[in-house]
């Protein structure tokens, strides 16, 4: 039985932001990370990124890093609770991926084979 605190499925936006925050990162860094890692498939708009970061912070899945005077930009890092969410989501995706690979032609099973 999975932990009841865990929410699933996560939105792609939430998942990508949390992955970008395994190391302390600021909004601009998150945008660049996501665009680069998805080869430009996902480009966050400022409104979407702002709303998602606020939401993740409220849920305590990410937290604000201590801001020093030299740092102008706010940096966030994923929390332990956030990491649990990401791991649970990856497990779910693995399950779906495995099923998809078993059934579709990509995974080797042809269309006329019995499922």
């Amino acid at each position: 039985m999975k932990n009841k605190i865990l929410e699933s499925p996560l939105t792609e936006t939430a998942l990508l932001i949390m992955l970008a925050m395994y190391k302390p990162n600021h909004g601009y860094g998150v945008m660049q990370f996501v665009e680069e890692k998805t080869n430009g498939r996902v480009i966050f708009g400022p409104g979407t990124l702002y709303g998602a970061i606020n939401n993740l912070e409220k849920k305590k899945w990410i937290t604000l890093c201590e801001v020093t005077e030299s740092e102008r930009k706010k940096e966030f890092v994923i929390t332990e609770l956030g990491k649990k969410q990401v791991e649970a989501e990856l497990e779910r995706m693995k399950e779906v991926y495995k099923l998809g690979m078993e059934i579709t032609s990509i995974g080797g099973m042809s269309n006329d084979q019995e499922i």
Partner: peptide, 23 residues
């Protein structure tokens, strides 16, 4: 009014459908 240097990519404030609906 948001302004940024043109990087050749579309400038959308909301990049997912849920946020667009909310807006």
């Amino acid at each position: 009014i948001l302004e940024r240097e043109n990087n050749g990519k579309p400038f959308n404030i909301y990049s997912n459908v849920k946020d667009k609906i909310m807006s």
